[in-house]
Design a protein around this nucleic acid. Sequence first.
DNA 1: TATTATGTAGACCAGTTGTTATAATCGTGA
DNA 2: TCACGATTATAACAACTGGTCTACATAATA
Lengths: 193, 193
Amino acid sequence: MTESVREKLIATAASLFQKQGVRATGLAEILRVSQTPKGSLYYYFPHGKDELTKAAIAYAGAQSENRVKRTLASDADPTKAFTHLFQEMADDIASSGHLNHVSISLIALETIDEPELQSACAQVYSRLEILYTSKLIEIGIKDDVARDLGQFIQATTEGTVTIAATKQQPKLLLKTAKQVTTLIRLTLANQKA
Amino acid sequence: MTESVREKLIATAASLFQKQGVRATGLAEILRVSQTPKGSLYYYFPHGKDELTKAAIAYAGAQSENRVKRTLASDADPTKAFTHLFQEMADDIASSGHLNHVSISLIALETIDEPELQSACAQVYSRLEILYTSKLIEIGIKDDVARDLGQFIQATTEGTVTIAATKQQPKLLLKTAKQVTTLIRLTLANQKA
DNA sequence: TATTATGTAGACCAGTTGTTATAATCGTGA
DNA sequence: TCACGATTATAACAACTGGTCTACATAATA
């Protein structure tokens, strides 16, 4: 279990970064919360904060991917599956008041001018988009239509999440869920005609 | 023209904050870019960075509002008007590579746990939402439907903008424009039936 | 002209940032 | 027990943060 220190470091960094942002989170806070000595940080991450940040982005991204994958697969009915997903995100925002476990949007916007971190975030978005698209294809939407719609749904999700957190109104996600599900239904119906 | 120093201070702060974020932008940089001595900053903003940040949020918000209002009013045809708006935002992202003049999402997410700044950002979002909704009502969409759709369009816009900036693909906004305009058309058509 | 507000200029401070270097400690196998 | 690599523990580092303070110039007013 020699990896546990390293993993705890990444996990708490990811959480704090999603909450407060990378710049607002000092190494001191990460070490305090994770109860890790400073020496260990530079032992596991010789290149310092940048290296830890890169790992944290990948970690947070994988976490989001897992949730989306799992939740979208939890119900064959796409309406229920998507509603379920949005409900989960709303719960997370309600309990923490932040984008913790929900989105990397804050990190992504913060790190736009640091190429390595920016492309790491871009990759996360791309993989999430694929998950949305796949689900749409799975339920019978044509490939190219599904791609556009999946992109659209992802954008709406990220946007709703940032507005919901800013306004401290997690329920906004439920309204978005309704809009998204009817949009999917409409697309399906329109396709048969 | 004794206000010009104060205004220049606010404008450059707003621009830098939208680009890099509040935490990443030191007072030193704001003063250097705006060519203002430190003494003047604390003369016009006795409460320091927080006060300047609040003013910058209001300024950036008003700027966005003006653009949305102006552009949505520029064409009676809603499809053209919205496409025009998204095109403008894409151009801004393309030229600066940041959310400069386009969105306060970064600032909003950064300042979630500072109540005054957070509510200032929430207000900006609310006012933008009203602008979208108003346009929809104007073109004949029922009030309650327009409200939900306006909210939806705003969320999509914010989300697309952050993803487009992260991926450095401003053209994503054009795809979103298509989706939004067909959604509006569909809503109008569906209403007559 | 003398006085007073208005605005500018920048030195200075205490605290924090990320980072480095070196010393101590631990665990484990020979 | 010894030795060796893997961790951890401190101390110190320069660079920077936001903020305060005082001295100075300017211009309006009395």
